[in-house]
Design a binder for these strands. Structure first.
Lengths: 111, 111
DNA sequence: ATCGTCTATCGTCGATAAACGATGAACTCT
DNA sequence: AGAGTTCATCGTTTATCGACGATAGACGAT
């Protein structure tokens, strides 16, 4: 039926999901999310102290999470606030669940 | 509780999850999974025809999915069978759901 | 035995990711 | 004003990804 190159309706969301999954596919970024868990917002330095990585590296990882839409970013000058976008994260979980549903469904109906 | 640097018990599963998420974070591989959906097994050529990519590229993507443990592989000579590992896929979904749960939980209870 | 088909792998190339140090901007405090 | 903090970005280096063509192995059919 439709290939993945169907740019009209399917490609954008798919790319969105894959970008979010890519953002989640790094241990450091998962750890960052854990650091931001519970809805509390952290500044960069907090995460840095938690992670044992260079500040610039952590900043990059945060940027990736923000660009993927998983983390919100309030650029206050001194203490930028990073905060989990819980809705976006839940949406990713739902997308993965839907994918699993699709892949595991018994196709007895029409084929 | 445990940080990500806890190499004894926590690190291996984390890496396992991130590897699976990385495998899922590419549109072509999602499309491959859709092609394998419903528990039906496909050979490489079927996927190639479905995907508009070179055969070698598809074979690589399949390999990544197999190495991540999301797809089972029965190397028959002429028509290798690729098949979704539904349990593994469900486990990924559960892991993501648990992550979201952790990240969105109100931190009153025990962490 | 030979041809055609299907796979997997190799080698290559450009692009991207991951990590770091260094730097500069902006703010707070003394 | 000046020192100290915090942060984002730049530039660099190394490693990996994504895609392809080419190739070799294995099988079925002729």
């Amino acid at each position: 039926m439709n290939s993945i190159s169907d740019t009209s309706s399917c490609c954008a969301p798919v790319k969105d999901v894959t970008q979010k999954l890519a953002a989640l596919s790094h241990p450091a970024r998962l750890e960052i999310l854990r650091c931001l868990a519970g809805g509390r917002s952290c500044c960069c330095k907090e995460v840095v102290e938690h992670l044992d990585l260079a500040q610039s590296t952590v900043s990059q990882h945060l940027k990736i999470l923000v660009e993927a839409g998983l983390v919100r970013y309030a650029p206050e000058r001194q203490r930028s606030r990073y905060e989990i976008d819980q809705a976006a994260l839940a949406a990713v979980s739902a997308s993965v669940a839907a994918l699993v549903e699709t892949c595991c469904a018994v196709e007895g109906a029409n084929i």
